[in-house]
Amino acid sequence: MQRRNYLALVLLATAGTAFAQAYPAKPIKLLVPFAPGGTTDIIARAIADPLGKVLGQPVVVDNRGGGGGIIGAQETARAAPDGYNLGIATVSTTATAPAINPKVPYNALTDFTPVINVAATPNVIAVNPKFPAKDYQSFVAELKKNPGRYSYASSGTGTIQHLLMELYKNLSGTFMTHIPYRGAGPALNDVVANQVSMNLDNLPSSLPFIKDGRLVPIVVAAPQRLAVLPNVPTFKEVGLEPVNRLAFYGIVGPKGMPKEVVDKINAGVKKVLEDPVVKKRIEDTGSFIVANTPEQFAEQIKAENAVYKEVVQKQKLTLE
């Protein structure tokens, strides 16, 4: 009996190794749980084509926006754990949405297989150029003088953009109405068009509009002032350090993915991120390369999940 069990284990291990060696044998889907045009989409497309070349099969980006990232994340969680159904995980899908929404249809800590954290990025509050304030002090003064007059756009209810702005409102004593969208791209378009006054967004998707003068940066969530925005203070500088949090963009798969496949994807992404062209493309957006291990990424997801649960509890935030 013991010999039979031993042989079964050997056969399973051999089959797993053979599968990993054959992987990938067909195109891989990389699901982005937001509409095109946002930072999540930018990061995914920066690595998809070169990763496909490294792995020997195309990596196809598939945008599934809606529900603040929940719809796409759920699709990844429910997919077959064979390495052909990957998704981009963000702070929104793994921490803020579960923190504020008890009905999220997945467990962010147990229903995914963390593969690698690709990059982290600062967040920025930016306003339409027609907004009457162009610096932080006058921005706060305008909001306090006219509570409820202005609205802000986000990439969806329960996203990092939503919860960070709500945290900002609570700590700064200001009030703006939340207007959720299906992704950062549509939200940005309406702020640029002055349909909505402002947003708190990941820097990569906002930066082109800032450089073109179509958005005015007010304050950033970053470890220190950014070289691309040297005159813009951090939240820590203005006395709001709890809002000074980065976003992340990593790759996950459904729970139960073979370790050999996870390691192969992890190694492939790391190789892609060593390419100076890819590295520059990501860093030019204001993001930082992370490229860590699956275990380290799992710990980051766990840590952010705990942080935003505490934020929601302390600030008494709800979906209403």
Results as ranks from 00 to 15, higher is better:
Met1Thr: 14
Ala25Arg: 05
Val32Leu: 02
Val32Cys: 05
Pro33Val: 15
Pro33Arg: 10
Ile43Trp: 07
Gln57Ser: 12
Val59Cys: 08
Gly66Thr: 09
Gly67Ala: 08
Gly69Asn: 03
Thr93Val: 08
Leu109Pro: 02
Asn123Thr: 05
Ala126Met: 10
Ala126Arg: 02
Pro129Glu: 08
Phe131Asp: 01
Gln137Arg: 13
Ser138Arg: 10
Leu143Cys: 06
Lys145Gln: 14
Asn146Lys: 11
Gly148Ser: 11
His162Cys: 00
Leu163Tyr: 01
Leu164Lys: 07
Leu164Thr: 14
Leu164Pro: 02
Met165Tyr: 06
Leu167Met: 12
Phe175Leu: 06
Asp190Asn: 15
Ala193Ser: 13
Val196Asp: 01
Leu200Val: 02
Asn202Ala: 15
Phe209Arg: 08
Gly213Phe: 05
Leu215Gln: 05
Pro217Asn: 06
Ala222Lys: 04
Arg225Met: 10
Asn231Arg: 07
Pro233Cys: 06
Lys236Asp: 14
Glu237Pro: 12
Val238Pro: 00
Leu246Val: 05
Pro254Asn: 07
Lys259Leu: 11
Asp263Phe: 08
Lys264Asn: 09
Lys264Gln: 06
Leu273Cys: 10
Pro276Asn: 14
Lys280Tyr: 01
Ile282Glu: 03
Phe288Pro: 00
Gln296Thr: 12
Ile301Leu: 11
Val307Arg: 14
Tyr308Ile: 00
Tyr308Phe: 15
Tyr308Trp: 13
Lys309Gln: 15
Val312Asn: 00
Leu319His: 04
